[in-house]
C-alpha cells in the first residue's frame, strides 16, 4: 500500500515543527556559548537549514542509518538524538554522547542509526554507501541517508558512490543540502553544471525541492524513501536552502572582510523554515496559542539540558589510552 505523501497531517507537521525548534533552540544556545568563550571549539550551525534534515528524517526510524557533516547538530537531533547528550558532548563533558571524545563535528549515536557527523568533507559518502550495502544484505527494507553539502558534491567519491549504489541497487538516499556556499567560496565558482544532473548518467532518480519548506521536503523525501524500501535503489535529493549564520560561529572575528551581502542573508531570513512551518500549521487550523505551548516546552527542555550539561563532570584522561581499540586488553 502506498502512503499519501501529498499532505502531512497536522500531527506530523507539529512534530516536525517541534524538532526544528529543538534544533534552533539548541543551536542558538551553542552559538551564544561559543561567543561567550564557553566552548572549546567553534561550531558550524545549521540555523536556516532545519527543514531539510527534519523533513527527511521524519521518514526514518532508529533502524535506518544516516551520515552527516561538519554541520551535523541538526541531523543528529532530526534523527532523534538526545539534546542533552549532544549539548554535553559539545561542552566536552563525560556525559556527552561520545564521552567528550568527538565533539561538535563528530556527534554520533549508533543506537539511533546516527553514524556520525564528520570533519572530513564528503567523509560520509563511503560510510553511507557501506551502510546501504549492509541494509541491502539485511533485507529488512532499511535505508541509509547521506547528508552532504554542495561543496562536498565536488568530491570524487560522490561519483564513486553513485556508480556503486546504482550498480548494486543500494537503498542510499544522497541528500545534497545546497546552501550556496562552501566555507567562503560561492557555489558558482566551485561547481560546474547542476548537481542534480550528476545523477542522470548513473540512472539514479533525482529530485530537487525547496529545502526551507518542511512540508515539501517531507513529501518528496517520503516518496523517494518509500521507493527505496521496496528495493528501489538509490536516489539523489537536492534541497535548496541557506545557512543564515556563518560558516562557523563568530567567523567575523577572523575574517578580514565579509563575503556575502546583508541583503542576501536577509532575503533568506525572510524565508525562515520555522516561520514557514508555523504558517503551514496555521493553514491546518492550529491556533497560535497551541504553537506557543510547543515553543515553551522546547525552551524549557533545552534550558534544562544546557544547565545540566554545564554542571556535568569532565571526562577522565585515564580513558584516552584505552579508547583506540575495543579489544586491546585481549592481547
Amino acid at each position: 500500500m502506498r502512503n499519501d505523501y501529498q499532505n502531512p497531517s497536522q500531527e506530523t507537521l507539529l512534530a516536525m515543527y517541534e524538532r526544528m525548534l529543538v534544533i534552533r533552540e539548541t543551536e542558538e544556545y551553542l552559538g551564544a556559548q561559543f561567543r561567550a568563550g564557553e566552548l572549546p571549539a567553534g561550531v558550524h550551525l545549521y540555523i536556516g537549514q532545519e527543514a531539510s534534515g527534519v523533513g527527511i528524517c521524519a521518514h526514518l526510524s532508529d533502524e535506518d542509518w544516516i551520515t552527516s557533516t561538519h554541520r551535523g547538530h541538526g541531523h543528529f537531533l532530526a534523527k532523534g538524538g538526545d539534546p542533552y547528550a549532544m549539548i554535553a558532548e559539545i561542552h566536552a563533558k563525560a556525559d556527552g554522547v561520545c564521552g567528550g571524545f568527538g565533539g561538535t563535528m563528530h556527534v554520533a549515536d549508533l543506537s539511533r542509526g546516527i553514524l556520525g557527523a564528520n570533519g572530513i568533507v564528503g567523509g560520509g559518502l563511503g560510510i553511507a554507501t557501506g551502510a546501504a550495502f549492509a541494509a541491502k544484505l539485511d533485507g529488512k527494507g532499511k535505508v541509509a541517508a547521506c547528508f552532504f553539502g554542495d561543496g562536498a558534491a565536488n568530491q570524487g567519491t560522490l561519483m564513486e558512490a553513485m556508480n556503486v549504489a546504482s550498480l548494486w541497487k543500494l537503498p542510499l538516499l544522497l541528500v545534497c543540502e545546497h546552501n550556496g556556499w562552501s566555507e567562503f567560496t560561492r557555489s558558482e565558482v566551485a561547481t560546474s553544471g547542476n548537481i542534480l544532473d550528476r545523477a542522470q548518467p548513473f540512472g539514479i532518480p533525482a529530485q530537487e525541492v525547496d529545502g526551507n519548506d518542511v512540508g515539501a521536503v517531507w513529501r518528496v523525501a517520503g516518496e523517494m524513501i518509500e521507493a527505496m524500501r521496496n528495493d528501489g535503489g538509490p536516489g539523489l535529493l537536492l534541497t535548496h536552502t541557506y545557512r543564515t549564520r556563518g560558516h562557523v560561529e563568530a567567523e567575523i572575528n577572523f575574517l578580514s572582510q565579509s563575503y556575502r551581502s546583508e541583503e542576501e542573508v536577509a532575503s533568506w531570513e525572510a524565508r525562515d523554515p520555522l516561520d514557514r512551518a508555523v504558517a503551514l500549521l496555521a493553514e491546518t487550523g492550529m491556533a497560535t496559542e497551541e504553537i506557543l505551548v510547543v515553543r515553551e516546552r522546547v525552551k524549557t527542555l533545552i534550558d534544562a539540558a544546557a544547565a545540566r550539561a554545564q554542571a556535568a563532570p569532565d571526562p577522565d584522561p585515564a580513558l584516552v589510552k584505552s579508547m583506540m581499540f575495543s579489544e586491546v586488553d585481549a592481547w
Binding site: 542509518w65 551520515t67 549508533l110 553514524l115 567523509g123 559518502l125 563511503g126 560510510i127 553511507a128 554507501t129 557501506g130 551502510a131 546501504a132 550495502f133 549492509a134 541494509a135 544484505l137 539485511d138 541509509a144 570524487g156 567519491t157 564513486e160 558512490a161 556508480n163 556503486v164 550498480l167
Partner: peptide
C-alpha cells in the same frame, strides 16, 4: 567492485558500523 578505492575503504567502515564484518 568497481575501481574506487577511496569509496571502498569508507564502505568498509559503514558496513562494519552497520553490523557486518567486511
Amino acid at each position: 567492485t568497481p575501481i574506487c578505492e577511496a569509496l571502498l575503504t569508507g564502505m568498509a567502515v559503514g558496513m562494519a558500523a552497520a553490523g557486518w564484518r567486511p
